[in-house]
Design a binder for these strands. Structure first.
Lengths: 197, 197
DNA sequence: TGACTGACAGATATTGAAATCTGTCAGCGC
DNA sequence: GCGCTGACAGATTTCAATATCTGTCAGTCA
């Protein structure tokens, strides 16, 4: 039996998520994490230079999990407009599902993300790049007509903020949410669309 | 001389804003407001049933001041697309100016507004109605082609959230803000635009 | 040697007693 | 009578003493 499990960053992150779930963001301490790992808290500092960096790593892992299904869609084949719509729906739906399934944990991750703003910035840039890739495909297909792919991608990203940014999570309970989101998507896709001539 | 000024709700609101400015949201008490008015705090309760309602009234006044210049634009004459663009620019610029000129007071009003959510809801609905009025004019002019005016108005409002919602105020420092906002506006107007046939 | 411990200093959080605030209302004075 | 006051109960906030946590590091043990 492999009774003594080695202390790895990955294992620390897993246990940290667990501690965050059980104690909540405000109460979870490095000492709690160390206790759950059955090591001294000094050992945790061997792998993460500070509590802030540990939290940042947790935020990064969470964001990566949220955006994982999007990578596939952006690299898929098929008509760009439908693909962009699917990508945006997947992103927003993933966030909305997370908040409805476990609001406390969502709030925890949201606060973590707010603290780790450099990580969030990189995450956002990654998302905009994926949108840009789909729009670029659409331009090649002749389905889209845009002056500046990157700028359009950013505009699309920003226009959907209300449906994916945690700051607006309390408005996602609206029963008309889906209808409103459909209207927004239709407007945005129409804005990218190449005009018949 | 009219030395004894009567105690009116309006005067209480003015002084309350002053107290909020000097003490900050967390420290400002009804007793402070009464002291500044040189009356007992019981007198304040004669005009506002609770501290919450006083704060709500302050929030309402502030929102009304922000949206005042918009009323004119929505009732103006002239081509709807330019008018819609001007309306959106005015709204977002007003918010961005407020936060840059007096960030503390902006944060105060933002928190007040978060508490007084029914007031904010009414304010938002008023804004969407103004957008709807402009879009409706645009449809009559033949400049816009939309299936559902109200739904489109909401979509336009929601798409610009990032540039007007206080939750995103810390991103308004971006030097490219104007360029990005231009790109978003162009995309949205293109989405409303009637196609040549 | 190198992963881990545990004691330590300074920073931060908790706690409970005291102070202040909110909201009410009987009564004062114009 | 009407507008205001000021004392009051209960809720909330403050403050300072106490406890806990963060981050470091000399030392242990395999």
């Amino acid at each position: 039996m492999n009774e003594v499990v080695v202390l790895t960053p990955e294992r620390i992150l897993e246990v940290t998520e667990d501690v965050l779930r059980r104690f909540g963001l405000a109460k979870a301490t490095v000492v709690d994490v160390a206790r759950a790992l059955d090591v001294s808290h000094g050992s945790v500092y061997r792998h993460f230079p500070s509590k802030a960096s540990l939290r940042e790593a947790v935020a990064k892992r969470w964001l990566a999990r949220v955006s994982a299904p999007l990578d596939e869609i952006s690299e898929d084949k098929g008509p760009a407009p439908a693909r962009l719509e699917r990508w945006l729906r997947t992103l927003c739906f993933a966030k909305q599902k997370k908040v409805s399934e476990d609001p406390e944990m969502f709030m925890t991750y949201m606060t973590l993300a707010r603290e780790a703003c450099s990580v969030v910035k990189a995450y956002k840039e990654g998302l905009v790049d994926q949108i840009a890739a789909i729009i670029s495909d659409g331009v090649k297909e002749g389905a889209f007509d845009v002056a500046d792919v990157k700028a359009s991608a950013r505009a699309i990203y920003e226009a959907t903020i209300r449906y994916q940014h945690p700051a607006h999570a309390d408005e996602w309970k609206d029963p008309d949410l889906a209808v409103r989101f459909d209207a927004l998507l239709a407007l945005l896709l129409r804005g990218l669309e190449a005009r018949k001539r």
